[in-house]
Design a binder for these strands. Structure first.
Lengths: 170, 170
DNA sequence: GGGCGCATGTAATGAGTTACATGATTGA
DNA sequence: TCAATCATGTAACTCATTACATGCGCCC
């Protein structure tokens, strides 16, 4: 329900059409959120069928027709419910994406350092791009800040591991 | 391919049957890994069909027949490839599970603190259980250590946010 | 004799992605 | 005129989960 929460939260601040919503997410929130176009369109349709949002057709000049979405009372209620649910609960990540660490010892230290340095570079690039991401007002900025903190923590960890490997390899 | 890497890595250290593999993951790695039984069985069958592992039937006494899996040369090659791939690349998390933070300002500070404190408690329980998880030798322990570090970072962050809210609310 | 542990699976479902499809306007 | 942007979708597929199904042995 996290994606629904996001869409509702954004629509609550300002009515938007699907393309616009997706574009905003891509441009401004790509640092921490990745939602593909068909997913956005699908969820909007579903929430519209569920009565959480209304769909209003709009044309501007000769541009393609848009469907502008707006929260209903039921949508507002759903938002409030999902928000409380989301803030109060914690789910362990299902799968450690860095599972390779578990088998590091099957490589020689030199190669391990080389591979992890490559990964470290990717993390540091992600951090750099996160730090230049568009700023926002209010709490919307917090998820970006949090992502930056998380990436810094990732870098710290990688440096620690690389240092340990270099020590053991020398 | 992360799940395949895990299974290959474990089988590489010691031949096992499906039930045993799943049990090990549940018992010893549940802190950072969550893989359901049908998923394990499915992947083992698939990897066996792909020639990455061999399947050998075994009976002990009158117990149900087991299928003991063992890496083939192709499996070893796949392991080496997947390991390098995994260690050298980084993927941004697809979706911030704490998206609710973005809409914190739509709640009054008092309720926000109450909800986040609930979440904080869940995180701290996860940390406690991670710290009492079975210890392992070698690099297998690293993913557990990393998870502990990550949970500590999560707690730090939550404390910071809660503090900010209490400050602004008073 | 009844429930739990061992051991294996299948079938249906869900959530999201990729690839495909359409069509108009705008700017180089 | 050709590509990019605006705007909406459908269809097929992937990956993993939940729910369901089976059956023997062991212990109370």
């Amino acid at each position: 329900m996290e994606r629904e929460l996001l869409l509702l939260g954004l629509l609550r601040q300002q009515e938007m059409h699907g393309y616009q919503l997706h574009e905003f997410i891509e441009r401004d929130l790509s640092v921490c959120i990745n939602m593909k176009k068909p997913t956005a369109y699908y969820l909007l349709k579903k929430m519209s069928q569920d009565g959480w949002i209304t769909e209003e057709l709009a044309r501007e000049g000769n541009r393609p027709t848009k469907k502008v979405y707006r929260l209903t009372a039921a949508g507002e209620a759903a938002f409030q419910r999902l928000l409380r649910e989301n803030l109060s609960t914690y789910r362990l990540a299902e799968f450690s994406d860095e599972i390779g660490l578990a088998f590091l010892e099957s490589l020689d230290a030199e190669e391990a350092v080389r591979l992890l340095s490559q990964r470290r570079k990717a993390v540091s690039e992600a951090l750099a791009s996160a730090m230049t991401a568009p700023q926002h007002q209010g709490s919307l900025q917090w998820i970006i800040e949090r992502q930056i903190q998380r990436l810094k923590n990732e870098l710290t960890w990688m440096d620690e591991i690389i240092a340990r490997l270099e020590e053991s390899g020398s």
